[in-house]
C-alpha cells in the first residue's frame, strides 16, 4: 500500500476559502480569512442528498409542463422543452437544436445521475477509479451554469416578442421548475466535498 500524505493525516486542515493550512483537527476559524473551517464537509452529504432528491422531483414537471406559450396571429402553441427542440429541428436548425438538447435536457440529467453516483460512492466507500470520478465531479461543477441557457433564451423572447394578439411569448410553469432544477443542482455540486472520494481509497 502506497503511503500518501494528506493534509488531514498530518494534522492540517485546509481553509475552504483562502487555502491557508491550519494546524488543527477540529472545527475552528481560519486566522487569515475568518471563515469557519472543518476538515471535511461530512454534514454536507445530507444537504447534497436533499438537494438532489428535490431536483429529481422538479425535473419531472420541468419536462412535462410547457416551458413557453407562443401566440402568433391569435393562435397559441405551447412548447415543452423537448417540443422546442423539435420545432428547431423542423426549421432545419440542427446545430442549435443539439445545443439546446445538450444544455437543457442532457446536462441536467447527467448532473443528477452524476452527483447521485458520487454520493453513493462516498456513502458505500466504493473502490473506484478516483481519477475518473474526480474528472466527473469537475465536469459537473463546470457545466452546471450552462443549463441556464434555456431560461435566458425564454427571458429574451418574452421581453422582445410582446405585441398582444399579433405575436406574443409568455413563459410557462415549467420555466420555474427548470430554473429551480438548475439552481438546486448547482448548490448540490457546490456543497459536495470532492476530497471525500479520495479519503476511502486504499490504493
Amino acid at each position: 500500500m502506497k503511503l500518501i500524505k494528506t493534509a488531514l493525516a498530518q494534522g492540517f486542515i485546509r481553509c475552504h476559502d483562502c487555502g491557508y493550512l491550519i494546524k488543527s483537527k477540529v472545527q475552528c476559524l481560519c486566522p487569515v480569512c475568518k471563515s469557519s473551517v472543518s476538515a471535511r464537509r461530512h454534514q454536507n452529504l445530507h444537504l447534497t442528498t436533499a438537494l438532489i432528491i428535490s431536483s429529481f422531483c422538479l425535473y419531472i414537471p420541468a419536462n412535462i409542463y410547457p416551458i413557453m406559450a407562443v401566440t402568433e396571429l391569435g393562435v397559441t402553441a405551447r412548447h415543452t422543452i423537448a417540443g422546442g427542440i423539435m420545432v428547431l429541428i423542423q426549421k432545419d436548425m440542427v446545430p442549435i437544436a443539439i445545443l439546446v438538447l445538450v444544455a437543457s435536457i442532457l446536462v441536467p440529467l447527467m448532473k443528477l445521475l452524476g452527483i447521485t453516483l458520487l454520493l453513493l460512492c462516498v456513502h458505500y466507500r466504493w473502490q473506484v477509479n478516483v481519477h475518473l470520478f474526480t474528472r466527473m465531479y469537475r465536469i459537473i461543477a463546470f457545466v452546471g451554469r450552462w443549463s441556464m441557457l434555456d431560461i435566458f433564451m425564454i427571458s429574451i423572447l418574452v421581453g422582445l416578442v410582446n405585441m398582444g394578439g399579433v405575436a406574443n411569448v409568455i413563459a410557462g410553469p415549467a420555466a420555474t421548475a427548470f430554473a429551480a432544477v438548475v439552481v438546486l443542482t448547482m448548490f448540490a455540486a457546490k456543497s459536495f466535498d470532492p476530497r471525500l472520494i479520495w479519503d476511502h481509497q486504499l490504493t
Binding site: K5, T6, A7, Q10, H16, G19, Y20, L21, T134, W198
Partner: peptide, 12 residues
C-alpha cells in the same frame, strides 16, 4: 503559506 494542500484531494 509554508505548506499547501490540494483543495480536491487534500494532498499535502
Amino acid at each position: 503559506y509554508a505548506f499547501e494542500a490540494c483543495p480536491e484531494c487534500d494532498l499535502l
